[in-house]
Amino acid sequence: MSAPSFEAIWGAVPYPALVLGADDAICAANPAAESFGAVSARHMEGRPLGRFLGEDSAVLDVVRQARRSGVSVAQYDILVGWGDQAALSHNIHAAPLNENDGAVLLLIHPLGMADKMDRSLGHRSAARSVTGMAAMLAHEIRNPLAGISGAAQLLEMGLGDADRELTSLIQTEAARIGKLVDRVEQFGDLRPAQRRPLNIHDVLDRARRAARAGFAAHARFSEDYDPSLPPTAGDPDQLLQVFQNLLKNAAEAVPKVGGSITISTAYAPGVKMQRPGGGSESLPLLVTITDNGPGVPEGLVRDIFDPFVSSKVNGTGLGLSLVSKLIADHGGVVECDSRPGRTRFRVRLPVWRGAAPDEKERAGSGVVVSEAEA
């Protein structure tokens, strides 16, 4: 067997790879880089890297450090945004090609689904910790809360108008605490999902209709569905709750005038979850909910699914944590990427394969073992 040509090796590199000149202009780009930037190599070549990444990009610092030191330099988990794409975490490797001409090979490694799955499983564990607290809250808080509210009502009957304002405040705050306990108590439902084959579009349509009739009446909806999607394995009521929560989150984020929410579905094979009992399960069904709100603060994006983490002034931080728990219970994963003017939640779910996997096996699911996209 003859040695493969440079072109074959260059084309087979699975990560975006760029050759940069001494002036940081792009000299060559492999096919993965073209796909990554949605720009042809011909359009990139001869243009400075900063034009695509921004002149203040940390990637340029890595490239220049490699050129100055003459050795390979790596920097992990830094934000990279190409053009108008959202900035996402990547690992960067830069290595000088020649000592004299200043050429540098740049490799961009997107943090793949394995990292996202690890975080999703971590969110699931955190949600289970809230589960143990939920039962205690329901028992230890509801009874005295009812007593406080009842006592305030009795006091109100014998007070003047000025003092009734205070008892009304007590009742209002007691009701608010009661609603918070109701939301936390949802984590205490340990019943396994009653999975059966279902059309994900039926669930999305129910969630959309409910949203348009209520909390999202001010938003403009658009749908981009793939009608050929096979059925997924799921509990329709739990998945309805998931998508209602995501739509409510989007509706609260978009502006009252000009707010838009897009729901799309696609078949995206390549992401698989390994199970300890052997074998793996593919997550090819992709549901994306996009809004044109101001975006999630950069410091919260990675932790947005953790319990009690919220970007809202009066948010409890439980809605998205419940979403993560329910999707993990279905063997799927949910992720978020956000920038000002566009926030996108992606939900990946398995296809119905007949008998549902054993729940105990599901609870110990591992990380992604193969992926076709970052």
Score class of each variant (00 low, 15 high):
4 P>W: 05
5 S>R: 14
11 G>I: 02
15 Y>K: 04
24 D>K: 04
24 D>W: 06
24 D>E: 11
26 I>R: 13
28 A>G: 02
29 A>N: 06
31 P>V: 01
32 A>F: 02
33 A>W: 00
34 E>N: 03
37 G>R: 04
37 G>D: 07
38 A>K: 12
38 A>V: 08
44 M>Q: 03
46 G>R: 11
47 R>L: 07
53 L>Q: 07
58 A>G: 07
61 D>V: 02
63 V>I: 07
64 R>N: 08
66 A>I: 00
67 R>K: 11
69 S>G: 13
69 S>W: 00
69 S>Y: 05
76 Y>S: 10
82 W>M: 14
83 G>F: 01
83 G>R: 04
85 Q>K: 11
90 H>T: 01
94 A>Y: 05
98 N>T: 13
100 N>V: 10
104 V>S: 02
108 I>T: 13
110 P>V: 09
112 G>I: 03
115 D>M: 07
115 D>P: 00
118 D>A: 12
118 D>I: 11
118 D>G: 15
120 S>R: 05
121 L>N: 15
123 H>C: 11
125 S>Y: 10
131 T>K: 12
131 T>W: 09
133 M>N: 01
133 M>I: 08
135 A>C: 03
135 A>D: 12
137 L>I: 00
139 H>Y: 10
142 R>E: 14
143 N>V: 15
144 P>W: 03
157 M>K: 12
171 Q>R: 14
175 A>P: 04
180 L>I: 15
180 L>D: 02
186 Q>S: 14
186 Q>I: 14
188 G>T: 06
188 G>S: 08
188 G>I: 06
189 D>R: 07
191 R>T: 09
196 R>S: 12
196 R>P: 06
201 H>Y: 03
205 D>M: 11
207 A>Y: 02
207 A>P: 06
215 F>G: 06
215 F>T: 13
223 E>Q: 10
224 D>P: 02
226 D>N: 13
227 P>N: 04
227 P>S: 07
228 S>F: 05
228 S>K: 06
233 A>G: 15
236 P>R: 12
238 Q>S: 12
243 F>D: 08
250 A>P: 08
254 V>F: 05
257 V>A: 14
257 V>F: 09
260 S>L: 06
263 I>D: 10
267 Y>E: 01
269 P>H: 00
272 K>Q: 10
274 Q>I: 13
275 R>I: 03
275 R>K: 13
276 P>T: 06
277 G>T: 14
280 S>V: 13
283 L>D: 02
284 P>A: 01
285 L>Q: 13
286 L>K: 08
290 T>K: 03
294 P>L: 10
294 P>W: 01
296 V>Q: 03
298 E>S: 15
298 E>L: 11
299 G>Y: 00
299 G>R: 00
303 D>F: 12
308 F>W: 02
309 V>G: 12
311 S>H: 14
312 K>L: 14
312 K>M: 10
314 N>Y: 08
316 T>F: 01
318 L>I: 09
320 L>A: 11
322 L>G: 05
326 L>S: 04
330 H>I: 00
331 G>I: 01
334 V>N: 05
335 E>I: 05
339 R>Y: 00
339 R>W: 01
349 L>R: 00
351 V>K: 08
352 W>E: 14
353 R>M: 11
353 R>Y: 02
357 P>N: 09
359 E>M: 11
359 E>D: 07
362 R>I: 07
362 R>D: 13
370 S>N: 05
372 A>W: 01
